[in-house]
Design a protein around this nucleic acid. Structure first.
Length: 423
DNA sequence: TCTGGGGTCCTAGGACCC
DNA sequence: TCTGGGGTCCTAGGACCC
């Protein structure tokens, strides 16, 4: 059996952790640039505040109801997430961290009649050790456990936050209660199609044949989904040490950018970030792609950005920040159009290989050994001091384009000077 | 005025090869 | 006049996830 453990309103819960006065009160957390609402407590949901809705559209509701608002504080959430995952690892030898706030656990070996008690104990321990409330779904497959989890979350009182789908009767009841759009793996396009076939619940879909799914539901993707709904595992637990196949850093600017110099600074900064992630997993990138997004074609106040992109295959895979920056700058120049109003940029590192598999070419100088040391020092200093104490000059010093985060809380757990003060 | 960021997987279609 | 079949690899783009 597989469990999915999902933190309830994770970002908002992290904020509450250090502001106990917010318990029982509505709280929302905003995306980068304070753009959208990305986390809401149950109290905020009850006020009708929509997930992923733009902040400014909900502002009135928020102010009238005294909703606490926070900008995203990724230092805090990342650190709390680690504590939660560490706790989960003491309950199962195989934990797959699926996202910042959820993990799959392999519960093979737990006796069927013990699953419920074990899950309840797991839930209580996690909440006791970390202060973050969680919901748990347990079932033979990942898709079914996601369905169980959703039901646990929806009815926290009735289920006590734990739902187990062991036998077919329990599964049938759960699937009948689940609309097709709420199935993990069925998105907007898929659900529209299913509704057209008069397939409205997960139970309806479960009873379709694999052949039908192959023809009408995206080939093998659909077949897998049907099997998983029928309790036959097709989506296996992922190995914890798998490395990323692409690494991206993309961001909206805090305010529009018109100058080439500023664009170059932003791109160089994003590359520094991406290269850090690359080195953290001991990889090198073989290609770099880059996009600039402008908002020149605004019609009737509509949000209609257009983006231009370009890429380069690197002469030899690398993890060196300055080499990546040097390769990217000509691309920025080529894409830049004077007079355009740029609102976003991004870099994506691809063709990723393990760094010890780099094949140096004939003309590689001894410089690379030096550079390797330099990267090591930069990463260590930046990791311990943070705030990019060491950086490349091309990343600029003014950063007019930096994102807005006007309501960010303290980084309570990762900075000495921002610790929580108890009177 | 104001609409996030970072990933994965799959498919179709083109280029190329023998 | 006649103009194959089968395979691989790569890229772009779509769909989906949190």
């Amino acid at each position: 059996m597989k469990a999915i453990v999902d933190c309830n309103s994770f970002y908002a819960a992290c904020e509450r952790l250090f502001k106990p006065s917010l318990h029982g009160k509505p709280v929302v957390v905003l995306s980068n640039n304070d753009g959208c609402i990305v986390s809401r407590t149950d109290e905020a949901k009850a006020l009708g505040i929509q997930m992923a809705g733009p902040y400014y559209q909900n502002k009135k509701e928020i102010e009238e109801n005294n909703v606490a608002v926070f900008s995203s504080n990724y230092h805090l959430y990342g650190d709390i997430s680690k504590r939660v995952m560490e706790t989960l690892r003491s309950f199962s030898p195989q934990v797959e961290v699926y996202s910042v706030d959820e993990s799959f656990l392999d519960l093979t070996g737990i006796a069927a009649d013990q699953l419920y008690d074990y899950s309840v104990f797991l839930k209580h321990t996690t909440e006791l050790w970390t202060g973050i409330p969680v919901s748990i779904g347990v079932a033979p497959t990942k898709v079914l456990s996601k369905i169980a989890n959703r039901l646990a979350k929806k009815d926290k009182q009735g289920t006590k936050g734990v739902v187990i789908l062991q036998n077919i009767e329990q599964q049938m009841e759960a699937l009948k209660k689940t609309a097709v759009e709420d199935i993990w793996g069925v998105g907007c396009a898929g659900s529209k199609k299913l509704r057209m076939f008069n397939i409205n619940t997960a139970w309806d879909l479960r009873n379709r044949s694999e052949e039908w799914a192959r023809k009408n539901l995206g080939g093998i993707v659909g077949v897998r989904l049907i099997k998983e709904l029928n309790g036959m595992p097709c989506i296996e637990m992922k190995h914890p040490l798998t490395t990323k196949k692409m690494i991206a850093t993309t961001r909206m600017f805090g305010k529009p950018v018109y100058e080439l110099k500023e664009l170059k600074e932003a791109v160089a900064t994003y590359i520094s970030r991406a290269a850090e992630k690359l080195r953290r997993q001991n990889s090198a990138a073989g290609s770099l792609s880059l996009f600039l997004m402008n908002n020149d074609n605004r019609l009737w106040n509509q949000y209609h950005p257009t983006s231009k992109s370009s890429y380069v295959i690197l002469p030899s895979p690398t993890y060196l920040t300055h080499v990546l920056i040097a390769n990217a700058m000509p691309l920025v120049e080529a894409l830049y159009n004077k007079g355009s109003k740029y609102i976003k940029a991004g870099v994506i590192l691809g063709n990723i290989i393990p760094s010890d598999m780099i094949q140096f070419n004939l003309f590689e100088s001894e410089e690379s050994a030096q550079s390797k040391k330099l990267m090591h020092i930069i990463d260590n200093v930046n990791f311990s001091m943070r705030n990019d104490i060491l950086k490349f000059a091309t990343t600029g010093t003014t950063k007019n384009w930096k994102m807005r985060q006007e309501k960010r809380s303290q980084r309570f757990t990762t900075r000495w000077d921002e610790l929580c003060i108890v009177k």
